[in-house]
Amino acid sequence: MGYADLHIHTVYSYDGTSSVEAVLKYVAEYTDLSVIAITDHDCITGALKAQDLAPAYGIEVVPGIEVSTAEGHVLALYIDRPIPPGLSLIETALRVGEQGGLCIAAHPMAAGTSSLDFQTICAALEHPEVRRILVGVERFNGGLVYTRRNPWVEAVASTLPLAQVGNSDAHVLRMIGQGATFFPGNTAAELRHALEHATTEVRKGHGLGGVEVLRDFIPRYILRKMGWVVHNSDPRAPLRLTRVSQALQNTTLGSMPGVRL
């Protein structure tokens, strides 16, 4: 039996604070997760990089995107090409399906961020093809301020004919695994089977409160804006606070000077 966290951000998100390598190292050394998904905002570059690097860290990565649909965010998983933002939930799901991917409704009804409401989710599920693709709902989100609304979301989400998923929505390393999904097996393929057959269960994290999470995130976010992110040059290297250029996606992070954390 395995655990997965299917909502993790890296520096390829505007609000991510850790490199792909740092996320992989943290997951391998500090969590019991066997599968993760990198889901940067409207960007698949980091996810594909993570998938290539993952074997060296002994974990499996599902490539994905947190897509900004016209009605709110949805996680697109098991894909290998970008999905354009701004489309309807139905059109987004259909495009994910064209790649053989799956969708999970991210942090539904969350205050302070672009989120799907349950009415929109239910309407999309009336489309027979979308019903095959939109297979899960994030019943527990261990992320920022919307953590406090999880009890109400859990009650409504549990009535939907969808796989029940827990994720961290991590933007700093310590958040990873603060929400997770329990599934039969320990591989990305077995996780997919569990999502499609709604045999997943939610694992809540240790209850990082909004103040505690913000205390971690805000300093890291400020450092990110100043050009510093958490990084390690290879699986054996320590995590370091590393200076990078603003052209982050095109920078070889391992060549930059760093300060050991």
Rank of each mutant, 00 (worst) to 15 (best):
I44P: 03
T45E: 10
T45I: 12
T45W: 02
T45Q: 08
G46Q: 10
G46D: 05
G46H: 08
A47Y: 03
A47C: 13
K49M: 11
K49S: 01
K49T: 05
A50F: 12
Q51M: 07
Q51S: 09
L53Q: 12
L53F: 14
L53Y: 15
A54Y: 07
A54I: 07
A54V: 07
P55Q: 08
P55W: 07
P55D: 12
P55V: 11
A56I: 02
A56D: 13
G58T: 04
I59M: 04
E60A: 05
E60T: 04
E60I: 01
V62P: 03
P63M: 03
G64R: 02
I65H: 01
E66C: 04
E66P: 02
E66L: 03
V67Y: 00
V67K: 01
S68E: 12
S68G: 10
T69L: 10
A70K: 13
A70F: 05
E71Y: 07
G72N: 12
G72M: 13
G72F: 07
G72K: 06
V74Q: 06
L75H: 06
A76M: 09
L77R: 04
Y78I: 11
I79S: 08
D80S: 14
R81F: 03
R81S: 11
R81W: 02
P82A: 01
P82S: 02
P82E: 04
I83P: 00
I83D: 00
P84F: 00
P85F: 01
G86H: 13
G86Q: 13
G86R: 11
L87S: 14
L87D: 14
S88R: 11
L89F: 15
L89G: 12
L89T: 10
E91V: 10
E91F: 06
E91Y: 09
T92V: 09
T92I: 08
A93M: 13
A93K: 09
L94S: 02
L94N: 05
R95D: 02
R95G: 01
G97C: 11
G97W: 10
E98L: 12
Q99W: 03
G100M: 08
G100K: 10
G100F: 06
G101R: 05
G101I: 04
L102F: 01
L102T: 10
L102Y: 06
C103R: 01
C103P: 00
I104K: 08
I104D: 05
I104W: 08
A105V: 15
A106I: 07
H107W: 11
P108W: 07
M109D: 14
M109Q: 15
M109V: 15
M109F: 12
A110Y: 05
A111R: 12
A111S: 09
G112V: 03
G112K: 00
G112L: 03
T113N: 00
T113M: 12
T113H: 03
S115A: 15
D117G: 04
F118V: 07
F118M: 10
F118H: 08
Q119R: 09
Q119S: 14
Q119W: 00
T120N: 00
T120D: 05
I121S: 05
C122V: 15
C122N: 10
C122D: 13
C122Q: 15
A123I: 03
A124W: 08
H127I: 11
P128T: 14
E129S: 05
V130M: 08
V130P: 11
R131I: 02
R131G: 04
R131P: 04
I133E: 02
V135T: 04
